[in-house]
Design a protein around this nucleic acid. Structure first.
Lengths: 150, 150
DNA sequence: ATTTTTTTGCAAATCATTTGCATTTATTTT
DNA sequence: AAAATAAATGCAAATGATTTGCAAAAAAAT
């Protein structure tokens, strides 16, 4: 069952790459699989470490630039979303591409990151619209001391 | 009247520096005056340009590092707030230090920045609290096409 | 199977930010 | 007010993440 699921996902991911007119490469599939399975954000360095440790590691060496460029392409294709906590490091997470979006809470002590599945900021968006803006998007991240650290 | 007001502000700002145990220097006063008068955010480069053009320019040359370190100190002292739009450039604005806070909307085309004076995100904060977090803060910025650009 | 296009790997360039240190300026002490 | 102490400034160089150039390799199209 699990094996079948994985195969299914892999095909799906390859299909989405094809639809986005992106070549299907081992790096891209590996990144997408990892992001898809793990519901979390990854810095590029973290991704490289995790991919190295994988059972089915990539044959080629895992190079920063390669992962970086894969992520750029996947971001363009809306398969990956970039998350920025203002600490100078870009992080990435899987993007279902179905309009869902969420925010995060970052522990100011241990830097643990947790997803917040809700986003109730319609009021503010309304006001922004009143100001005459279009195609409004927003970034919102929370910072605080998590249970373990307080 | 205006002159008197300015003098008043200058004294206030010097007083706040004193209270924060920071030396009162021309650079710091000039930065604070500019930030206080202008209700907007400034990158360091923008600050340097603006300070150069001032009627009462600083005697010493305006050096990036100096402005940078001033802003760091002023941020610590909560007289200045740093704003991050995720474009790799830090910006700064005056901070009254009275608990007010606001967000911004950035035009995705012309990069114009406007302040949003309201912040209705109590619901989300409640949920974050339920998760066990303390000292919760957040970052939120909006992006969209402004009137002039759409 | 061959050509064409895209991706990868490595090195080097960028760009904003940060740090080191000698000099200057501000504050404190005498 | 002058001397001593502490802090800030200016310049150069270091840092660190990101981005780019280009030749080699891999994938897609013919």
């Amino acid at each position: 069952m699990k094996g079948h699921d994985h195969a299914h996902h892999k095909e799906d991911l390859a299909e989405r790459l094809k639809q986005a007119h992106l070549s299907i490469t081992p790096s891209r599939l590996a990144i997408l699989e990892l992001l898809h399975e793990s519901h979390r954000v990854w810095s590029i360095e973290q991704l490289i470490e995790a991919l190295k440790r994988r059972p089915k590691a990539l044959k080629g060496s895992l190079v920063f630039t390669t992962i970086y460029r894969c992520l750029l392409k996947l971001e363009e294709a809306k398969m990956v979303r970039r998350v920025d906590f203002g600490d100078g490091v870009s992080r990435f997470e899987f993007d279902t591409g179905e309009g869902h979006h969420h925010h995060h809470i970052v522990c100011t002590q241990c830097n643990a990151i947790e997803a917040l599945e809700d986003c109730h900021i319609k009021e503010i968006e309304k006001n922004v619209k009143k100001l005459g803006y279009q195609n409004i998007s927003h970034r919102m991240e929370f910072f605080g001391l998590c249970k373990g650290c307080s």
